[in-house]
């Protein structure tokens, strides 16, 4: 896998749609991982797609009236409701097709949101949409804070990170709770396809998007998206930071198909978390002890995940 990534120029023309559906000229910061991830997602989706975008960085940078970066039909309504608006879009397209009022072909509804719009304020709407079983792909672009409003803490902000609402200070090391794991919450909804992804592994991400839209019913991808501005790292380190998140085991890449876990990027030996943390200003204040706590937690979570990979069978294997 890593060979392909390193020789991206060589392989990309064959593997990646040349069409740009998320075009240049949007106003994202230099080195924005979220914008890159969206561009890759659109290439994997292709033209028969409707995008529903929650409020957040990506909506703001891409839709400054009268311009738009979107070459796919795109709808933004508000911050907490990408999943419920998506439910309505999906239902609308379905019934209009059934009644012969629009062309008889598959059009996929894809709702997207940041971590704030997904794991916090939009979690209820997401849970409802997934429980109801809409034919809907939801992609969370997780940059681990409310970036659009100025780097405030979210439920997806990692332990120890300094944000503008839970900053490090002489009496605080930053965020005191652990990151909320929404991919697991989606697995608990019996969503038939759940995956984690990162733009630093572009083909892995695009393959997952392609797989997810093939599912009849709900699917969910949680895409770690590096935000150089909020993570306080130079823009050119964006890709590296994403790869370090995966290679340290902080953000493992896997998919869960019909309940069966599979690592999509195998990491034979995890790098020390220090290699990831030291890249970023948001962790600069952490003491050796605090880093140790993080390392222990990562080891434990990784083992839990490996256990699932080894032990949990696919739903179809459970049928008698």
């Amino acid at each position: 896998m890593s060979i392909i990534v390193e020789n991206f120029d060589l392989y990309a023309p064959r593997l990646v749609d040349k069409e740009e559906y998320f075009s240049a000229g949007h106003r994202a910061c230099q080195g924005c991982g979220e914008a890159l991830a969206i561009r890759l997602m659109c290439k994997a989706l292709g033209k028969d797609t409707v995008i529903v975008n929650a409020t957040g960085c990506m909506e703001v940078v891409s839709s400054l009236y009268p311009t738009t970066a979107w070459k796919l039909p795109w709808l933004h309504v508000a911050f907490p409701n990408a999943a419920s608006v998506g439910s309505g879009v999906e239902a609308g397209l379905k019934v209009l097709r059934r009644k012969g009022r629009i062309a008889d072909r598959d059009i996929k509804t894809v709702s997207i949101g940041g971590d704030g719009g997904t794991v916090d304020i939009g979690l209820q709407a997401l849970s409802g949409a997934m429980e109801r079983g809409h034919d809907l792909l939801y992609v969370c672009f997780d940059n681990e804070a409310y970036m659009n409003t100025g780097i405030q803490r979210s439920g997806a902000t990692p332990f120890g990170a300094s944000t503008t609402t839970e900053p490090a200070g002489s009496a605080s090391f930053g965020k005191k709770a652990w990151k909320k794991n929404v991919a697991e919450i989606m697995v608990a909804h019996n969503v038939p396809y759940v995956a984690t992804a990162c733009h630093s592994y572009p083909l892995d991400f695009m393959n997952k998007v392609k797989k997810a839209v093939k599912v009849k019913g709900p699917s969910y991808i949680h895409c770690l998206s590096v935000c150089p501005t909020g993570w306080r790292l130079p823009p050119e380190q964006c890709i590296k930071a994403g790869r370090m998140a995966v290679q340290t085991g902080i953000f493992p890449l896997y998919e869960v198909e019909d309940g069966k876990y599979r690592m999509t990027i195998e990491t034979r030996e995890l790098r020390p978390v220090e290699e990831y943390l030291k890249l970023q200003g948001r962790f600069r204040h952490l003491s050796e002890d605090e880093k140790k706590v993080i390392q222990e937690r990562v080891n434990q979570e990784y083992k839990k995940l490996m256990n699932k990979v080894e032990c949990l069978p696919s739903w179809s294997d459970l049928k008698e």
Partner: peptide
């Protein structure tokens, strides 16, 4: 018709908004 049993009123109007945007 598609009857969506949403999980809140916020979602009810959001779903109507999305559906209406498709022309329903």
């Amino acid at each position: 018709a598609e009857f969506i049993c949403v999980e809140s009123e916020h979602s009810a109007l959001s779903a109507c908004c999305g559906a209406s945007a498709t022309g329903a």
